[in-house]
Structure formats: C-alpha cells, structure tokens
Design a protein around this nucleic acid. Structure first.
Lengths: 165, 165
DNA sequence: AGATAATACATGTTTAAACATATATTTTAA
DNA sequence: TTAAAATATATGTTTAAACATGTATTATCT
C-alpha cells in the first residue's frame, strides 16, 4: 500500500480543507448530539440545494420543477395525476397546481382532464421536457456533488431512513 | 443478553414501521447511490423542517426567525451585526434585513446603528426573546426528533461534514 | 336513490424567498 | 489626500411558499 498514491493524497487534502458544522456556523456547543445532527442535516441540505439551484437556474427551472419533471419521466409514457405527483415530491407541502402551471407555460408538460375521473388531471412530460432532462443528466455531475465513497453514501442514506423512523 | 428486552423490542418494531426513501417517494431506481443519498438528504431535511414548522407556528415564529434568536442568545449579552448573523445561519441566502424587521416588530430583538461602524447594525436579543427561547427549550423535545442512538447521530453528523468536503 | 362525506384541483390572499439595485460608510491604494 | 473598491444594509420587484376557501366530481352509507 502506497501512502502517497492519488487516492490517499486526495483524502488527506480533504481532511485539511473540510469544515465541520461547528466551524461553518461558528457554534461550538450543542444541546445534544441529536440537536447537532439536526442542525447539520438542515445546513447540509441548504448547502446542497443552493448548489443545485445555481445549476438549474441556468436552465430556467427551479429545483421543485425539476423534481416534478423527474417524476413524470419515471412514468413516461404513462400519465400521472397531480395528487400522485404531490405524494412523491421531496417537499410534500408543494403547491403542485401552480408548479404545473409554470411547467405548462414552458411547454415542458401537458395536462388534460382525466376521462375516468373528471376531478383529476392527467399530467404528461412533453418531448421538450424529456430533452431538457437529457441535457441535464449530461451536464450535471450530481453523483460527484457529495464527497463520499460509495460505502459512505450508502451508510448516510441508511441513517437518514432510520432517522425518520 | 435478553433478546426480548425493551430496547430490542423497540428496535425490531422500528424496523417494521420504517419506510425507506424508495417507498417514501415511490421510486425504485436511482442513477447512483450518491444520487439516492442526495435525494434522501433533501427529503429528510424537508420532513424535519415541516415538523419543526408545525411546532414553531404555535409560537408565532418561523424556523428562520428561531435560527436568528438562537444565534443571538449564543452571543448574549453581547450584540452582533447583521452580516455576522447571516454568516452563521443555516440558510446563507436568507434575507436578514427583513427577518430582523419581523423580529423587531415582535419586540424579540432590538437594533441600533453600530457606533464604531455606522454602516453596521448592532443586534441584541430582548428579554421577551430570551423568555420565548426558554419556553421553546422546555416544550420542544428536539433531541428526540431523530430516531437514532447517540452513536448513529454522531456518525450521521460526521458523514454530513464529509459530504460537503 | 339521495344525502353526506371525501377527493382532486383551482384560486385568492398573505407572507416570505430570490434577485437586483441603491445608499451610506469605511477601507484601500495611487 | 482623494478616487476607487469593498462592505453593510436597506429597499424595490418578481416569484414562490403557506394557508384558507371554493367548486366540481366521485365515493360512501343508510
């Protein structure tokens, strides 16, 4: 094992530049380790979303709008109702009606009243919508956003699942 | 070791009721484990913040306003400038000026121009502000929000620090 | 069948976030 | 010393979130 191969140098470099949450928000003490984790979770999510936002705004959409497009693409070519979309969104308090209005105005989705249930709306991603997502997945290296190994990312995701338990 | 003591029963119960992110947003496949972790992180942060919001709204403040009060209390009885507050907030894009307006309107903080630097504002938490925080820390069992052991919470916080690396 | 409840959305309104720009003050540098 | 740059905050404007309410349609229950 070489102590100075590229992986290890990268790792050592990371340790030196990494800022713990205490530094980031300049708070030394927390009521409990749980409170520290809560604060770190919200801080890191905001950090992440602001990076995503930077990227998405160059494409003229918001993170929420992207979230909806991603859900629709998962269903394509089937349609899906507004309430189904809402139940799958990362932010459950989203104002889906008006988010869909904005996506429709950009011709990224299409809507029509569901024939079987006239209360509901069938929502479908359009060709331009799919094209935009393709462009995004080519450009965006989302996988590299988190500086974690695969094992660490797996552990993180598992801990988050359990945290909500 | 008893296989059926209270801790283990609680743990087994948790496994059965716990929903993984795949279930929560009804998406089976992810581009990568990193993407899954990113999505889980944002989802969990939203879940957490909506729980906090529920609690804070009974007290007439928002999560962001609470964040500022907490920072001010950490400084008490010293004052702190608006830009210092901003740099310590969980959401760095916050509109601090107007958040302070709202807190001042509720008499939870006081402001005055800094004598040494007339551009800056000295911000201070008031007695009612401190009283509100006391009430919150009595009522709120934030430590219990995350269903994790102390070790798990520690690991989670460490992974989040590294994720931003 | 007919009244009642529940569901799926739409819309109105208030509040806050996002972004750009303006103003006053202080720091820097020629 | 004085012009230019940087800083701290306020404010204007557009967009979105939060919350309540309205309306049409479907499901339920007696």
């Amino acid at each position: 094992m070489y102590w100075c191969d590229r992986v290890h140098v990268a790792w050592i470099f990371r340790i030196f530049r990494m800022k713990k949450i205490e530094e980031e928000i300049q708070q030394e003490k927390f009521r409990s380790i749980h409170q520290k984790a809560v604060i770190n979770l919200i801080y890191t999510s905001n950090w992440l979303q602001s990076k995503q936002h930077e990227f998405f705004k160059t494409l003229g959409i918001t993170g929420q709008q992207f979230n909806i497009l991603r859900i629709l693409k998962g269903q394509h070519p089937k349609s899906i109702s507004g309430s189904e979309i809402k139940s799958r969104m990362l932010d459950r308090n989203s104002d889906v009606s008006r988010l869909l209005d904005r996506l429709a105005a950009k011709k990224l989705i299409s809507r029509r009243t569901c024939p079987n249930d006239k209360r509901a709306t069938d929502v479908l991603i359009t060709e331009p919508g799919i094209a935009l997502l393709k462009q995004i997945s080519k450009t965006q290296k989302q996988d590299l956003v988190l500086c974690l190994t695969e094992e660490e990312a797996e552990t993180l995701s598992d801990l988050l699942d359990r945290a909500r338990g």
